[in-house]
Amino acid sequence: MAPALKLLVQRVALGLMLLFLVSALIFVGTQILPGDVAQSILGQSATPEALANLRQELGLNEPALTRYFDWLFNALQGDFGTALTNGQDIAHSVGNRLKNTLFLAFWAAVIAVPLAIFLGLLAVRFRDRWPDKLISTVTLASISIPEFLIGYLIMYFVAVKLRWFPSVAMINDGMSLGEKLSSIAMPVMVLTLVVLAHMMRMTRAAILNVMQSAYIETAELKGLNRFQVIYRHAFPNSIAPIVNVVMLNLAYLVVGVVVVEVVFVYPGMGQYLVDHVSKRDVPVVQACGLIFAAVYIGLNMVADVVSILTNPRLRHPK
């Protein structure tokens, strides 16, 4: 177990270091945006006096390095400060938004991941025959269409014409789980269509790769049927690349769905971040950036860990 453990510790340490570097980058990035917070809050209605008053109040006159370490230290304790624009507690607002984002990502993943892997297995089983071609064509088409267009199409047919689900995916705490699920049905559909192809193609390719090996031939020769061969022998050996692509897509579901959020008016992190970027609300942008980075790095770390653990050579060293 020793080499695996060592690798794991290395991975985690690397992840943390990466996160620290990212925090510095986020801070620098937000500093070099054109215009400043005061200007953006007041917009076209900014007079020089109002600007000066607001800058003073927001502490924008402190040196950058002081502000960075203050921020990092507080962020580590879970205190992201208050939003400059509306004075609300960031940890609280972000917490709500993050909960919504994770809710949507969770249900999209619950449907998309098993479906993608199942379709991948199916495609391998019927390789180069019509089911394989149909699956590939449909998923590739859905990934090629921009997601907002899929969103509008689904909205037009499902919400406006058929009136099956609401076009506005608004959820709040007063709703039951059933109501919430009905509310997010359309964004979940869109997200599923968007992430399906990538995971399904990767599953198919990874398994096909393994299928060339000698031990698959042996399995076939000892009389197992084709699906059993794939399921028992090929799939476990191609888990590493599949987990990798699954994690990438999960990360996308958490950090990259701003377009879908806007189209369906879903109160998630992406929309929250974009609103505050356009107002130069630096503390919020930094908090969101840090959370996104943590999610991305965290999920990739999980992918690495899983690949290490599924590698027998690392689990059972000589």
Binding site: Y152, Y156, V160, R163, P166, S167, M170, V262, V263, V265
Partner: peptide
């Protein structure tokens, strides 16, 4: 009041009776 900044989504919400 429901904030729907996207033009198409806002009009669709009106058409589908959500607002």
């Amino acid at each position: 009041l429901i904030v729907i900044n996207d033009d198409t989504a806002r009009v669709a919400a009106l058409q589908s009776g959500q607002v």
